[in-house]
Amino acid sequence: NKFNKEMRNAYWEIALLPNLNNQQKRAFIRSLYDDPSQSANLLAEAKKLNDAQA
């Protein structure tokens, strides 16, 4: 399933972002599970926040 693969990839990328705190990571990951079709958008948002907090 395409969404499962995208979701799994996004999950690990988000989990490993160095500048997000655990609460932020959990919120993004919860959103991934709520709507796997938004994986790419959620990952992009997480990366933006990660960069902003660098």
Rank of each mutant, 00 (worst) to 15 (best):
K5V: 03
E13F: 15
D35N: 08
N41P: 03
N21G: 07
R30P: 01
Q23F: 10
A40I: 10
A10P: 01
L42Q: 05
N19W: 06
F3C: 15
D35R: 10
A44I: 09
E6H: 03
N22Q: 11
S37R: 06
L42M: 12
I29K: 05
Q53F: 08
P36R: 03
N1F: 00
Q24L: 05
Y11E: 11
L49Y: 08
R30K: 14
N9D: 08
N1E: 11
K48G: 11
I29E: 03
S31M: 08
E6G: 02
A54C: 10
K2I: 14
A44G: 11
I14W: 00
A40R: 13
A10W: 02
E6T: 03
Q38T: 06
R8V: 13
A46T: 02
N4D: 15
E6L: 05
R26I: 14
K48F: 09
N19L: 10
M7I: 05
W12K: 13
A52D: 08
Q38H: 09
E45H: 08
N4W: 14
A27W: 11
A27C: 11
N21R: 09
S37V: 06
F28Q: 02
Q38K: 10
L49R: 05
A10I: 06
N22I: 07
A15N: 14
L43Y: 03
R8H: 10
N21S: 04
N50S: 10
N41D: 08
I29V: 14
L16F: 11
A46S: 08
I29F: 10
R26C: 14
L42T: 08
E13P: 01
I29Q: 14
D35P: 01
I14G: 00
E13V: 12
Q24C: 05
S39F: 06
D35W: 04
N9P: 02
L43S: 10
M7P: 00
P36H: 04
D34I: 05
N9Q: 14
N1Q: 04
A40Y: 05
S31R: 13
F28E: 00
I14R: 00
A27N: 12
N19D: 05
Y11K: 13
K47Q: 04
L20A: 00
W12C: 11
R8F: 15
A44Q: 11
K2C: 15
D35H: 04
R8I: 14
L42C: 04
N19Q: 12
A54G: 07
K47N: 07
P18E: 10
P18R: 08
L43K: 08
D35V: 10
E6R: 01
Q38S: 15
Q24D: 07
A44V: 10
L49H: 04
N50Q: 06
L32N: 00
N41V: 08
D34W: 04
K48T: 09
S39N: 06
E6W: 01
Q23G: 11
N19T: 11
N50F: 01
Q38C: 04
K25D: 00
Y11S: 07
E45K: 10
A52L: 08
L49F: 10
Q24N: 03
S39D: 02
K48P: 00
E6Y: 02
F3Q: 15
Y11I: 14
N41C: 05
N50G: 03
K47F: 04
N9R: 15
L43A: 12
N1L: 03
R8Y: 15
R8D: 04
Y11T: 07
N19H: 08
A40W: 10
D35Q: 05
A54R: 05
W12P: 00
R30D: 12
K47L: 05
L42Y: 06
L43V: 11
D34R: 08
D51I: 06
D34F: 07
K2G: 15
N4F: 08
Y33M: 11
L49I: 09
K2R: 08
Q24G: 01
L49M: 09
Y11Q: 12
F28G: 01
R30S: 09
E6M: 07
